[in-house]
Nucleic acid binder design. Structure first.
Length: 294
DNA sequence: CAAACGTGGTG
DNA sequence: TCACCAAGTTT
């Protein structure tokens, strides 16, 4: 059941009044700035992204500028944002945009989907937020808002790309500009009001139309969501290894890497996987460094 | 489709 | 303290 026109308008008005003034939402931010923000924001909070985003846009204001940097420079500038393969993929996307698209971020979903690191969410986010297009933008916030406001559930169940896209598509106004604004509003509502823990229903602009409210705010009863461990995993070890290389200009001996993790088997397996992923490079003399700098 | 993939803040 | 959470993508 789609939102009424009034509900859509209410949400858009709420977004205009209460949405955050984030740098990638400003009129002077172009599609490249939006794309960089979307990649950085994947699984990463706004507060940690903002300072890095400013550094990147000042240093690499266009895709071709980033493409001209080495992978090592890019990984260093990525810092501790996490999931550093995103940085490599964004670098590769910048190369493709510079080479194949006249240094302009594509504006259609299918072309965007062909670029490295850009999936179902990011492609539509760029189309909607950078180009004002009507495209269902489905992230974890939107899935939660739809689960509650539309389906009356306590939270979203397991993701299903096809079903999630159809759900949100049905909510969008036909008009491109308003659809794009509503997409931003849905995300912002999930981020600020309809949050995972202790939602602020008293501040919600659409409680009157919320199926979850009408149902008496039942608890989530779907399958338990898997919890991600970190301590002791390969992800932690890879992070420690990479942190050593980020902190040095010169390639390092393996002994410098060996000290970060006691278990040799896991440590070596992780170093090998970093080499395979292209996040680490071995110099001819056998030392280790970030890629493309030596 | 499930699992892998970083990091740090917070209730 | 520690489990949960944060604008996902790839294999």
């Amino acid at each position: 059941m789609p939102f009424s026109t009034d509900t859509a308008d209410t949400l858009i008005d709420w977004f205009d009044a209460c949405g955050r003034d984030l740098p990638w939402r400003r009129p002077d931010c172009d599609a490249w700035g939006v794309l960089v923000s979307e990649i950085m924001l994947q699984q990463t909070p706004v507060a940690r992204v903002e300072p890095i985003w400013h550094e990147w846009l000042a240093r690499w204001p266009r895709p071709s500028a980033l493409a001209a940097a080495s992978q090592g420079e890019v990984l260093r500038a990525w810092g501790k944002l996490g999931y550093p393969r995103r940085a490599l993929r964004l670098h590769a996307a910048a190369e493709a945009i510079a080479r194949d698209h006249g240094d302009v971020v594509p504006d259609d979903v299918d072309t965007l989907l062909g670029l490295p690191g850009i999936g179902a969410y990011t492609a539509r986010a760029v189309a909607a937020f950078a180009y004002g297009k009507r495209a269902p933008v489905v992230d974890t916030n939107v899935r939660r808002v739809v689960a509650r406001a539309v389906h009356g559930a306590g939270d979203a169940g397991p993701p299903s790309n096809t079903r999630d896209l159809a759900d949100v598509e049905a909510l969008l106004p036909h008009d491109d500009a308003r659809a794009a604004r509503l997409s931003a509003a849905l995300m912002e509502l999930g981020a600020l009001v309809c949050t995972a823990r202790s939602p602020k229903c008293a501040d919600c602009p659409i409680t009157a139309d919320c199926a979850w409210q009408h149902a008496g705010r039942p608890a989530y009863n779907g399958p338990a969501k898997p919890v991600q461990k970190f301590a002791g995993t390969d992800r932690q070890v890879r992070g420690l290894l990479l942190d050593v290389l980020r902190g040095t200009d010169e390639p390092v001996e393996k002994s410098r890497l060996d000290v970060v993790w006691a278990r040799a088997g896991q440590r070596d397996r992780c170093l090998d996987s970093l080499l395979v992923d292209g996040l680490v490079e071995q110099t001819p003399d056998g030392r280790f460094a970030l890629p493309g700098e030596h």
